[in-house]
Nucleic acid binder design. Structure first.
Lengths: 149, 149
DNA sequence: CCGCACTATGAGACTAAGTATCATAACGAA
DNA sequence: TTCGTTATGATACTTAGTCTCATAGTGCGG
């Protein structure tokens, strides 16, 4: 699914044009494993495809988010600068982000989450309609090697 | 705990000065029930205490966040504009935000969340070190009255 | 009560993310 | 080829938040 051609095809199916600026941006997005900022992406696009404008980069980010190919994740940065983007498939899932190397793993533990939601609904009388959940930690690789924060 | 005098006292205990600009800002923060944006707060402060500068409002927001009196929450707004602030006590807890009226309820369901974390650790071999969780839905009041989105 | 070191403040410049505008260019169907 | 539509790049703009710096407030030691 995380393949430039597939996504371009999907774009076309949904009525958008498979243009080359979009392909350039998509190329840079797909090659990233860890969450990236818009600034990083724009820098990379400018280097590899100098003709492409900044607005197009943002427009493509927005388009792909709407299509579910990309997610915008929130991080507890100090001030602004809290957004990062991440290519992922569009099924409902959550992210596990490594504190050390930034790699992201998806997970789909809906049973336990449903249990949590049910418990909360009982206690609070809220009707829960949606959630935002992100876990951070240490991936299998970094768990062994690195020790300090 | 959500009392201006208490918080001012706490400020003083931690070595900060209980100045009147801080008190003005704090007043506006404490009177809000629902999450508010920095712009709303700044507008309110400017109206009720014209002498206070914008930088002071942001500095106070930051200070209170560091002290745990305030949380910065993330919302899936379209673009920037994703931050809201919320006064709350500093124990570890999560928020339940009403989609209709914006009211926020805290919850402390750590058992179910721990179960979720344990399950994920087993499946992924990650060591989970932290999480961000926010639930949105419909509070008891709005659940009865409103029906449309 | 006074002076002094330090912290806090306001004004305003600055930064960075993201959006809006607008004239132009590429597309693709007829 | 033509023509309506969609996409594009340049650039201006907006908005959240930060930085700087000169000034003012604060609290403590005398």
């Amino acid at each position: 699914m995380l393949n430039v051609d597939n996504i371009m095809e999907k774009l076309e199916e949904e009525g958008y044009r498979p243009t080359s600026p979009r392909r350039f941006v998509l190329n840079e997005i797909v090659r990233r494993q860890a969450p990236f900022t818009s600034a990083e992406l724009w820098e990379a696009v400018r280097e590899h495809a100098p003709g492409v404008g900044r607005a197009t980069v943002f427009r493509t980010l927005e388009l792909l988010s709407r299509m579910g190919v990309l997610q915008r994740i929130h991080q507890d940065a100090d001030g602004g600068r809290c957004h990062a983007y991440l290519a992922c498939d569009d099924s409902h899932h959550h992210h596990l982000i490594c504190n050390v190397c930034g790699t992201v793993t998806d997970f789909h533990e809906d049973r336990a989450l449903d249990a949590l939601v049910r418990e909360i609904e009982q206690h609070t009388d809220f009707k829960v309609e949606g959630h935002r959940l992100e876990l951070v930690g240490r991936c299998p690789g970094c768990r062994e090697t690195a020790t300090g924060q």
